[in-house]
Structure formats: structure tokens, C-alpha cells
Design a protein around this nucleic acid. Sequence first.
DNA 1: AGAAAAATGTGGAACTTGGGA
DNA 2: GCTCCCAAGTTCCACATTTTT
Length: 690
Amino acid sequence: MGIHTGSPRTSPGTSPQTSLAEDGCVGPRSPSPRPGSRSTSPLCKRTYDMYRNLVPVARSRSPSPHGGHEEHHTPQYGSNNISGVMNGFGIAQASSIPTKIVKTNQQAYPLYPENHTESYLVSCDQDVKTKPGPEPFFVIPQIWPKQLVPGICSIPVASLPPLEWPLPSRTDQYELHIEVQPKPHHRAHYETEGSRGAVKAPTGGHPVVQLRGYRGKEPLGLQIFIGTADERILKPHAFYQVHRITGKTVTTTSYEKIISSTKVLEIPLEPKNNMKAIIDCAGILKLRNADIELRKGETDIGRKNTRVRLVFRVHIPQPGGQHVSLQAASHPIECSQRSAHELPMVEKQDMDACSVLGGQQMILTGQNFSADSKVIFMEKTHDGQQIWELEATVDKDKSQASMLFIEVPPYRDPSICHPAKVNFYVINGKRKRSQPQHFTYMPLPVPSIKKEPVDEYESGRMGYSMSQMLGVSPQPYYNPRGVIPPESGLVPGLVPCQQTRLGVSPPDHRFQQQSPAIMYSRPGKSLSSSPIYSQTGATMIPDSHRSVLVHTGSPAQSSHLAGQHPSNQHPSIIQFSPTNHHLLRGGDPPAPPPPEHQHIIYCEGYNQHGPQATGANRSPAPAQAPQHPQNYPTVIQQQPFLQRVAKDRSPPVQVEPQRCSSTEEQRTSVPGRVTVKQENLDQAYLDDGE
DNA sequence: AGAAAAATGTGGAACTTGGGA
DNA sequence: GCTCCCAAGTTCCACATTTTT
């Protein structure tokens, strides 16, 4: 197997992490004081109580299995309190500029300790076998290669969208596609363990990612990090980090860097390989919950938070110095040891919607199903209260360990007028239940009412193409204040209020497929949480028709808020304005993000393409975005402009009866004569603010 | 080229912790 | 508020395989 780039686990290295940690209250504690004996004393094991009195500096005592170079680069660990693994090293950043240069004949990437948000830790695919010194160093190849990944190296990280920002997986020109998904289970390793290897594909190979539509000759860099896989917006996972695997069997060049406390692996996407990369170099490192939970500002909990996704990003240079950023996330990967053997896991369902009457057969594909497996359908309210539960009938004769044949039970209310999103899970026994899966009950057809699908996610299931959707039913943007022009190039990526209100998310692996916009970043202009940048950017492009995406609060914050308020999955808002007047909304009652967390992104592509981009054959990015818009913790507002788009789309659509949700009404409202009932707006407003 | 040693990969389980009954 | 149970998290062991010396 591959060589792991790290200290032997039996002989813990002397990484700065280790030494620092051991200087802390935890004290030195060999993982195995005597070879062959298990450490039995809990004395040195930290408790939550201990953490309460801990200063952030000395939390991690464990030797890092990471590459020796990493360890010695540790002082470079970027910035904002590198996460738990690296926690407490912010003070070392002052010395983040390497003081040594090491020459090697190995091919290497140049290191770019560009700024405080990014540090390159490892230079090349094969670790340079040099004696580690106490100081950080650059690794310079004997023959400096041409920029293998100019897309990476030439773009200041500050000008790239933050990792927690949602991005589309495709635009009208490009698509970042995961050709081979990873296995649904991968046991992550702790720092105290040796690597558990690279994430593999179900077939035994490795995940494969391809950038489609790229015609350039220059290689690009593909970024990989570990993202969340829960119900909320995709963001870097606080409790897991990507781990670089190298060795003989690893064919993919890779190197690491840290971006805003998240370890990111970068590998080249080369035209000669058809812009395809085999991800055989990415393992998953588990950080101890206690370490992370104590991190300042961390609101997530680690317990039972063991599902992750591999997130891939690419930044494609555009003429004029801009970049198109794409992101694709894998199916969820269960990372815990226990659940890999015990918990049932649904990987696929052959249908995700049916009539309220139920009765249809559904085939669940997954793992750890048993003869005793039950499938429970349930529905919860916004605030998490379960209001309905019903067991589906399992066809035990047909079912196997990896397949369950069930009969969808009828929904509790057959008279609903809009789709009802519910969850179901497989349960093998006491507490051995799968992650909730998503299912939608469709209302019975009402002949007199011309209904439309709720969102593209569902429309997709029902055979609608995006172009159909765009042509017929531009998704309105919910504006609690009453201005809802649904048309613009950004239409497909926006969040209709119904999803917001329903608060039920589609299957995880599709979460990331939604994004409000293509991200065009401007080199040199930080998109990070800087109000200065926002303003600067705003004045840079005084085009009155330019769409400005104002994100009040970082997605991470949003997630946190959502985490604190389960019923509020949409704490932030994205507003569009033809001017640079940002309509900051007051709909985030729990904790309005501080102004310094506003972001502005210029969606020039949309500006340029405007109406065309929303046309039937346009912009797959926005087209894809709304597939599961309900997962965005955002509500999007748009000022009334670009209504010209309305002309060539949206045949008259009958408006839903008022008894149905306001969203339905808005959805079916004709652009240009939007009529939204105030009470419905209020309702959505309230929902959003819950 | 082959052997020995070292390192890595992997599965399993012991042990600790803390939430919930 | 206390105790007990147990799921989940973390650490370690053992062994096979791979890589290095």
C-alpha cells in the first residue's frame, strides 16, 4: 500500500503540535508507555472539564501522523486558529515565512505562503526525504517545473470564494463532475493512529473527478477538502480534515495547504489527462471532538457527526483575470468505525416521491440491512417536533443485506395541495438507525388547478428539464418585503420560499449542487469577510445593471445559526440588486451576522448574459442550482429589474388557491405582475426567521 | 536480487466518556 | 441528585502488506 507520509505511529514525532500540546496541561503521555500495553490510566485523558480551563494553545497532544514536512511546516499553519488539529498555533503564524530552502531533485510545486489564509505545507507528490529541521522550509525542485497548476498558484486565495460558500458544479461552459463516487464508508483515522489509507471507490478503485468543458492548455488545480454531509449547507467539516496519502500506489500528484483552518489537498487537472483526476491520495483524518468543540466560535458538536463528503473545487481562469469557481461534492461518507459495521445505511432509493396514497414499491439500496430492518416514515415540524410516523411494509422475501423492498405507506393527509417532504429511515434495532432519507408525497392531481412542481429537484424527478422550468416557471425569489421579480440570470439558483418553509432537505449528496451563482472572483480583491472589500467592490463596478450578491453572514455562520436553531435553516439572505444598494434584511432574529461578515460577489456572468442566461438552453449552473434549493440557508431577494426576461417565458399560469402556501402562489405568479399576498410573505418571513 | 527491517494499512476490540433512563 | 447502562468516541493491538535499507 501507499506510504504514509508521517512519523511512525509507534514512535510519535516531535511535531510542534506535539510539543506544544505536551507543554500544556495535558502533559506528556505516550500513547503506549510500554510497548504492548494499553494505556489504562484515564488521568491523562482530557475531560470536558479540563477543557473548560484550557487555553487554546495546548490542546492537541497527539503526535501527528501527518507528513514530517507538515509537522515542520506547522508554523505555517494558517491563520484563523487552525482547527483543532492545528489548534492553538495562531501565535506561530508570525513565523510562517519559511526560513530555509531545501533543494531536491524531486518534482515539486512551489510553495506559496501567500497570506494568512493559506499555507502550503507539502510541496510535491513524493515527500522529499530530507532531514526535518526545526525550521520551516521551502522545497525547491532541482528543475523548477513550469507552473503545473497555474490556476492554483496564480490565484491569491483571498480572491477565491471561501470554502464555506456554495458554488455550482457547472456553468454553461464547464462542469465539475464526480465520475466515480467514493465508498459510502471510510473509517477515518485519528492523529494517534496511522493512516487508514485513501478513500476508495465502491469498485475498489478510487474516486474520479473530471472537469468538463475546459479547452485551455494550462493545467488547473483541483482542490479537495472534507465537507459536511448533514442537512445544512455544505461547508468544511470541523471534525474531519482531508489527509494526504502518498506512496508507490498513489499516482496522483498532490500537495496540501491550509485555507482558513481547513486543510485542502490540491492536485493538478491536466488537459493531457482530459482534465480528469483519480483521487487516490485523499484520506480522512478525524479530529477529536473535544478539541474542536472547544474551539472558539465552534458551535457544531462532533458526537454522531460522522458523515462527510469529499468536496472538489476548481478555479478556472477567465479572460480579464477573473475566475470561474466550480464545486462538486461527493455522496456522503460515513467515517466512524462502529457505524460501518452496525448501522444500516441507505445509499440509494429508486424513487423519492410518490402520491400521498402511497402503495408504491420502493427499492432501497445500501448496507447493513437485516431481516429485522424496518423502514419508518416520519414528518417533523420546523422546530423538530415529530408529527407523524408510520412504518412501511418491508418485503422480507425480496430484501437482502444490501437491498430493501418496501411499500411506501400512505401520507397522513391525502388532501394536501402541495408536496409534502418527509423523512424515512431504516432501523435495525434499538438505536441502530440510518441517517434520515428524504421523500416527498405529491398531492393528488386537481384537474382545475394547473400545478407546477415545487422545485427543480422535484421537477427533475417528474421529468421536467431545466429549460422547461426556466421557460415556464421561473422561480420567484422570496422577498418578505414584497418585491419578488423572479427573473434574471440568477433565477435558477435562488431559493423559493417553499423549500425554505418546508425546511426539509434532499439527500445529502445533492446538497451542493445548488448554488446561487457562478463565482467570479477578482484577483487581488478579497472575497473574504471584509466589509472593506465589499464596499470597494461595490464601487468598482458601478454598472447599474450589475447584479450584486450580498451575503449577510458567512455560510458558516449561517450553519451555526441553523445548528442552534434547528427550525431556522435559513438564517441568512442573499439579495440581488441592480444597484449597489444592499438590502440588508432583518430576518435573522437569532443573531444577525456582524457586518464584517458580509460578502459581495459580482455575478458578472449573469449580468452579461442576463436574460439569455436564464433561457432554456442556458447556464447549467443556475439551472442546476435550484435542484435542491431548500438546502440553502439563504433567502434571496432581488430588486425589481430584468423583468424583461418575463416576456419570453412563463406562459400564463394559474395561481394556486390561496389556501395553498404562499410559495405556491409566488411560484406561479407571472413575472412582471408579481402579486404576493402579504400574509403569505409574512408567514414566510416568520418561517425564515424562526 | 534477496533478506531483513521498518513503515504502513487495516480490522478488531479495549477502554473512556458522557448522555439518558 | 444519584446511579447505572450503554452508545459513541478514542486509543491501542495485532497482523498482513508494502516499502526501504
